[in-house]
């Protein structure tokens, strides 16, 4: 097991419980997705794992290659080989593509493989990253993360704001990266339909708790996923207050 998260709890301002006892696992070379509505705690979960929320998670363990990384600094976690690509892509908008890559330790001579994966970036090396299209920005964010040679990549809504064609291209690249470099991915997504295609396992998170988990076929067969995430029909619709709450959240 490469990453094992045991019952973590993340609290903002000592009173706002955002993650309430989440446990999940990630094996080497695996892609797992975490899906859920806005405000479910997906981003907080990823940030807690990556050490980007100071002194959090308050409870629980995060074992990465058998070492507890909970509450360690983001810099140390990143150097151990776990990298987060944030939902806003985390580019440095005033720097050029080349400068962005250099910040991740890009070397012109040894790291040309990056342009085999992302050929678009080669032609745009001198461009200010803020002026790239959304898809190119996402590619740059991924390229920068790959340069750090991580074992695990945490991707926060990588398909956000991208056209369907670009989304499928992006997920194809992620699948290729897994195959070629043996990287593992934990992806927080709202686009269940696209991400489920490449996932080995999936979790549904609502109000800071995992409410459903299973293989892609389990997810596809789940009435809950069909109703709330895939837009399908439900044979026996759930009734009552619970369904009303779920729909409102979504």
């Amino acid at each position: 097991m490469l990453l094992q998260i045991k019952n973590i709890e993340t609290v903002y301002y000592d009173r706002l419980y955002v993650i309430k006892g989440v446990s999940l696992e990630l094996n080497e070379g695996e892609i797992r997705i975490v899906v859920g509505p806005n405000g479910a705690g997906k981003t907080t979960l990823l940030k807690s794992i990556a050490g980007l929320i100071k002194d959090q998670p308050r409870k629980g363990e995060i074992l990465f290659a058998n070492q507890n990384i909970a509450r360690k600094s983001a810099e140390k976690i990143s150097k151990m080989g776990l990298i987060l690509v944030p939902d806003d892509r985390g580019l440095f908008p005033e720097l050029t593509v080349e400068e962005n890559l250099k910040l991740a330790g890009w070397d012109k001579k040894t790291d040309s493989y990056i342009f085999d994966i992302f050929p678009n970036l080669k032609a745009k090396l001198k461009e200010i990253s803020n002026y790239l299209s959304g898809g190119e920005q996402q590619m740059l964010a991924l390229a920068r993360a790959i340069l750090k040679k991580p074992k695990i990549m945490l991707l926060d809504e990588p398909s956000f704001g991208l056209a369907p064609k670009v989304v499928s291209e992006l997920f194809r690249i992620i699948a290729d990266l897994r195959k070629e470099f043996g990287m593992s991915f934990l992806i927080a997504e709202q686009n269940v339909r696209a991400s489920i295609e490449i996932a080995d396992y999936g979790y549904i998170i609502e109000e800071g708790k995992i409410v459903f988990q299973g293989t892609p076929s389990d997810l596809r067969d789940s009435e809950l996923v069909k109703e709330l995430y895939l837009g399908g029909s439900v044979k026996k619709p759930e009734k009552g207050w619970q369904l009303y709450k779920r729909k409102r959240r979504w």
Partner: peptide, 13 residues
Amino acid sequence: DSEVAAESLGVDV
């Protein structure tokens, strides 16, 4: 520009 991104790239902020 982005402290989060810098940290997650391994920069000792």
